[in-house]
Simulated scan of single mutants.
Amino acid sequence: MAYSFNITSSVLPNGRTAYFGTRVNSPEARFTIGYRTKYQDNFGLYNIDAVPGMVYLPADYRATHGIWADFIYPTAYVESKSSFFCLNTYDRARFTFGFMQYAAHVPNGDFVRFLRTLLQLPLAPEYFPRLELKNKHIFYRSDEQVLTQLENEDSTLGLMNYLNPTLLDIETQETICAARMVHWAQHDAEHRAIQVQLAIAFFQANLPRYHQRLGLAGAPAKACIVVCDILHQGRGTFARMAAALDTGGNWERAYTNLLTIGAANYGERIGALKRKIAEGVSSGVLDKTYDAAHNTFV
């Protein structure tokens, strides 16, 4: 029997409206799905709560992923405070989830690949009984047993409509899908492990491409992290980064230059990124340089 959730909401003492989920026929405690917010003319949910045991810590995954577990950490922290159930349903992506903020609006993008992988887990039918993976794409099965493809190489509109029908208000479908994802992340270690596995796979695949454009061989890990973070967030161009890196081999100056990209609008994020990088360097785990030939750090 698929999991069902009762959804309630209430206004908190601070004036925020919170949405809560309770799993039906379960002794589990009520959990927070998210909080109502308005962004421009859009309405949606957000959840940036950082709960002990539900945040990404590199040490938990270092034995499996090596230095890459530490490499992704500064970006994970500035994206979500490393929360495995970070949620956003109020912007053009319609549904963004996870510690790396995977966004549903990109065809074959990080969220789509994330959900495709989740649908192969044993608990998938309990959380999303209507969704199926067929021919490597996500389909919806109706009461009449009709399958409808929700995403392809060109669009994720069907998937976005399923997860969050509109940005005009907070709909029942939106809260239910959000409840399923938050609860799943909180109650299934495999869900969290997939978030980590995919984040590392994305960064590992991207860095050689960035090297081809920017010449990162011999760069300190901290400079590579900033490059990856800039492109993950989208706050700078390759041309701007190339100019920042044009220091005649002075990597310290290059690193400082990279940190100025987007600083006018994202100073708080960049400051937190710099602090987390410094922690990794001082501990020795990030005090390494990029071996471009082997796509690793030495």
Rank of each mutant, 00 (worst) to 15 (best):
M1W: 13
A2V: 11
S10F: 10
V11C: 04
L12Q: 15
P13A: 08
N14I: 08
R16H: 11
Y19W: 11
T22C: 08
V24M: 12
Y35N: 05
R36N: 06
R36L: 15
K38L: 09
N42S: 14
L45Q: 02
L45D: 11
I48P: 02
A50Y: 03
V51P: 06
V51I: 15
P52Y: 12
V55N: 05
Y56R: 05
Y56V: 04
Y56P: 01
L57Q: 15
L57G: 03
L57M: 12
A59Q: 14
Y61L: 01
W68N: 00
W68T: 01
D70C: 01
E79F: 02
E79M: 09
S80L: 10
K81P: 00
S82P: 06
F84K: 08
F85M: 07
F85S: 12
T89S: 12
G98A: 03
M100V: 11
Y102I: 06
Y102G: 01
A104P: 05
H105I: 08
F111L: 08
V112H: 06
R113A: 11
F114K: 00
R116T: 01
L118I: 15
L118D: 04
L121V: 12
L123R: 13
L123T: 14
Y127A: 07
Y127C: 06
F128R: 09
R130H: 11
E132I: 06
K136R: 12
H137N: 14
I138T: 09
Y140K: 15
L150P: 05
T156I: 01
T166W: 06
T166S: 14
L167M: 13
C177Q: 15
C177D: 13
A179C: 06
R180C: 10
V182D: 02
W184R: 09
A185L: 00
D188W: 09
H191L: 07
I200R: 04
P208G: 07
R213Y: 07
L214F: 09
P220M: 02
A223W: 00
C224P: 05
V227F: 08
C228T: 03
D229L: 06
I230R: 03
Q233N: 10
T237G: 04
T237C: 05
A244W: 01
G248N: 03
N250C: 00
W251T: 00
A254F: 00
I261W: 04
G262K: 04
A264Y: 08
A264P: 02
N265E: 11
G267F: 11
G267H: 12
E268S: 13
G271E: 13
A272F: 02
K274C: 00
R275N: 13
K276N: 12
K276G: 01
V281C: 03
A292S: 14
H294K: 15
H294P: 02
N295T: 13
T296E: 04
